[in-house]
């Protein structure tokens, strides 16, 4: 028991003893008044009898008081025992109370930790959702880019194919032209040999002069083919 508690108990008992004393004084005063009034009202002969009677009553009272004192003593012993028992239980209760307090504090701390972890989990879950959304968007963009790349590749391949066709045509035309030129040259030599007409050869340069109309035709065709090819080439590049 704390000293402050013993202090309060002791002081309260001390305080009440004053009132009890007052009370006892009042009762004794009243009894004395009663006894005095009775004594005055009776004759001298009765006084002697009364004295003996009073002595007898006093002895009886003393005997009773002795018995009562023994009972009080027994009861006090029992009370002490009970008080000791009570103190034991009181200490147990105090111990349990302390334990409960500690547990309650621990529970509070755990609750706070759980709440904090819940908050962190919620934040992370939100972050994850945002990242997933972002990933989805990026995937879509990637897929679109792939499609565009495929389309461009297709177009480029087509362009290359057309270019190859054009080149083949041009080569075939060239080949034909060269074949015709050779034939024409051969025809001319043959004709010249037949007619014995000397070939108009520059005596000082030795250069063979072809008919200007034929040369012009060959050149024109080459220019047209070249222009056509360039034009197609440009448009393919523009498309790429």
């Amino acid at each position: 028991m704390g000293s402050w508690k013993s202090h309060v108990r002791a002081k309260l008992q001390q305080r009440d003893q004053m009132s009890q004393l007052e009370e006892r004084f009042e009762i004794r005063k009243q009894i004395l008044d009663d006894v005095q009034s009775k004594s005055i009202g009776r004759s001298g002969v009765d006084v002697g009898k009364n004295t003996r009677l009073l002595q007898l009553q006093l002895r009886e009272s003393e005997h009773l008081a002795e018995k009562l004192s023994q009972t009080v003593s027994d009861l006090t012993t029992v009370l002490y025992l009970k008080e000791a028992e009570l103190q034991y239980w009181q200490s147990r209760v105090s111990h349990c109370r302390q334990e409960a307090l500690t547990l309650a504090k621990g529970s509070n701390t755990l609750k706070a930790t759980v709440s904090q972890l819940e908050f962190t989990a919620e934040c992370q879950s939100k972050e994850l959702a945002a990242l997933r959304a972002e990933q989805k968007g990026l995937k879509q963009t990637l897929a679109q880019a792939w499609t565009e790349k495929e389309e461009l590749l297709q177009r480029w391949m087509e362009e290359k194919r057309e270019e190859a066709v054009r080149l083949n045509k041009y080569n075939a035309a060239q080949e034909r032209w060269q074949h015709w030129a050779k034939q024409l040259k051969r025809h001319r030599h043959r004709d010249m040999a037949k007619e014995d007409i000397p070939i108009a050869t520059s005596s000082w340069s030795g250069t063979t002069q072809t008919s200007p109309s034929v040369t012009q035709r060959i050149n024109n065709t080459a220019v047209i083919q070249q222009g056509h090819s360039d034009h197609n080439h440009d448009s393919a590049a523009a498309k790429v």
């Binding site: 028991m1 508690k5 108990r9 305080r15 009440d16 009132s19 009570l86 009181q90 209760v93």
Partner: peptide, 14 residues
């Protein structure tokens, strides 16, 4: 608690 109940009694019967 017995002691504390005594205090309550002492207070009440003052």
């Amino acid at each position: 608690m017995a002691d504390d109940k005594d205090v309550l009694r002492d207070v009440w019967f003052g």
